[in-house]
């Protein structure tokens, strides 16, 4: 269900954003937007597949060898 909602939102907002950028001739912006949105969707998918996976902070604290 979460996947469906996410892809629906990304699809709707993305469609209007891309349409506006194409109409305004913003090619470079469109490339940056697509790459960033794609990376975010991959990141979100990773989270949604297993919400209980190791967190970013856990990794950072481990990197700096901070125990709590």
């Amino acid at each position: 269900m979460s996947f469906l909602i996410m892809f629906l939102v990304v699809g709707i907002v993305g469609f209007f954003d891309v349409k506006n950028m194409v109409n305004s001739g913003l090619k470079k912006e469109l490339i940056v937007y697509s790459i960033f949105l794609g990376a975010t969707v991959i990141f979100a998918t990773l989270y949604l597949k297993n919400p209980l996976r190791r967190t970013i902070l856990d990794m950072i604290l481990d990197l700096f060898q901070v125990s709590w």
């Binding site: 990304v10 975010t40 990141f43 979100a44 989270y47 970013i56």
Partner: peptide
């Protein structure tokens, strides 16, 4: 939009 989407999932992924 990508920034806000990243904020939503990033904050959930950020810590437990």
């Amino acid at each position: 939009f990508p920034v806000v989407l990243a904020g939503y999932f990033g904050s959930l992924f950020f810590t437990g």
